[in-house]
Amino acid sequence: MTVAAERTRLSDVAQRAGVSLATASKALNGTGRMTTETRQRVQHAASELGFRPNTHARALIAQRSFTVGLLTNDSYGRFSMPVMSGVSEALVSKGVSVFMCGVENDPELGRIHLDAMLDKQVDGIIATGKRGDRQLPAELAELPIPVVYAFSKGPDDAVTLMPDDAQGAREATEWLRRSGRRRLAHVTGPEGFAAAEVRAAAFREIAGPDAPVLFGDWSEAWGHEAAARLWDGGNGPDGIFCGNDQIARGIIDALRERGVDVPGAVGVIGFDNWGVVVRATRPPMTSVDMNLAELGRQAGRLILALSSGEDVAPGIRHLPCSLVVRESCGGAGPDRMTA
């Protein structure tokens, strides 16, 4: 039975054609990469169901507003602000403005902000968040405009940018080895976080399968507790790679309280290169920088390309991290980048 035209939605077409919402949208808009057979199957399903694309959606594709929306659930701004900075840097010289909306973890708030962006006829949307293995609470799959995911999980057929956690973790662990450290340990956040598990696996590639890995919270308090565990019953490690800077700072403070010299007896490396933490730590902390501003710049360039009708291959693109060497593990004086 044919669904009445006024009640037919894109999701009905996608279900009839056996494709995702995003693929159905791209097939009907004449965008995206797919086989001719898939595009024709979607178009045939739309014809059978009497589906007619919204005229406003067509207008969004045909016109340019020279604005881009950025959606985030990172209300603190720890990760979204560097991304936003990079996006703006990439777009401002092209005459494109960026406005950011915080959606917290509220689907209703996500819908409100998304509707506002569509009303403003933005040329595209960049989705970013506070962790890369979770999607934002906003339905972005059916949109008639391009979406780029930056430090946020996207669907398989989307363009997604992520820092290369494994590469950053390997580089940190290799630096500890090259600094003469042999008894290595890794202290990180909760199991179940993709970043924590990827970094731990990369650490063990270099340190060995029996090297201790301690999972806990992303907090200084956990760093203190982890130090106590590592030093209970004897000598602890001489090199510690931490899953973030807050954990590393907690460990460094705990070692100072125990009278353990950093970096003389133990080298410590953090992850995130959060300026307010790494430079205030004593000694200043060596840390892995995820290069989120560069990730934002690339997201901005990609959203421009997509909104101009260029064909951009979907998939996850991992951008390299950089190790910033300071005094907590082998550095002295100005910050030194190793990659």
Rank of each mutant, 00 (worst) to 15 (best):
P263V: 09
Q167F: 10
E142C: 09
A228T: 14
T173C: 11
F99R: 02
P212L: 11
V198G: 07
A332E: 14
D165I: 04
R199W: 14
R183C: 09
V324D: 00
L304A: 11
T128M: 10
N235V: 02
R39Q: 06
S179I: 01
W231R: 12
G296L: 05
E257N: 05
W175R: 02
T35G: 14
R170N: 03
V42S: 12
R7L: 13
D165V: 06
V276F: 02
V260Y: 10
W218H: 06
V288K: 11
R181M: 03
I206K: 08
D157C: 02
R78D: 05
Y149M: 04
A59S: 15
A57Q: 13
L140Q: 10
V325L: 13
K94T: 13
V42D: 11
R336Y: 01
A22Q: 14
I240K: 00
D119L: 15
R182P: 00
F51T: 03
M34R: 07
S307T: 07
V324T: 12
L302D: 08
A305M: 14
L21S: 09
E220I: 04
T35Y: 04
Q40H: 10
G331T: 13
V98H: 00
V147T: 06
R182S: 15
A313M: 13
R33I: 09
A207W: 10
S11I: 03
D232V: 04
G233P: 00
P163H: 02
V198L: 12
I303W: 06
S11F: 00
P146W: 13
R52S: 15
P163K: 07
G315S: 12
L306P: 01
R182D: 07
P53K: 03
G296V: 02
M100K: 03
G180L: 07
L176Q: 07
E205P: 04
A5T: 11
L255D: 07
A280T: 03
I112C: 09
T338A: 15
E257D: 12
L306C: 08
M290E: 13
R111Q: 05
D245C: 00
A201G: 03
P53C: 08
L28Y: 05
I251T: 08
N54M: 09
A265R: 15
S308Y: 05
L176I: 05
S85A: 09
E37F: 02
L60E: 10
D123M: 09
V288T: 13
H113M: 02
A24I: 11
A200C: 04
P144L: 08
M81K: 00
E37L: 03
V213Q: 00
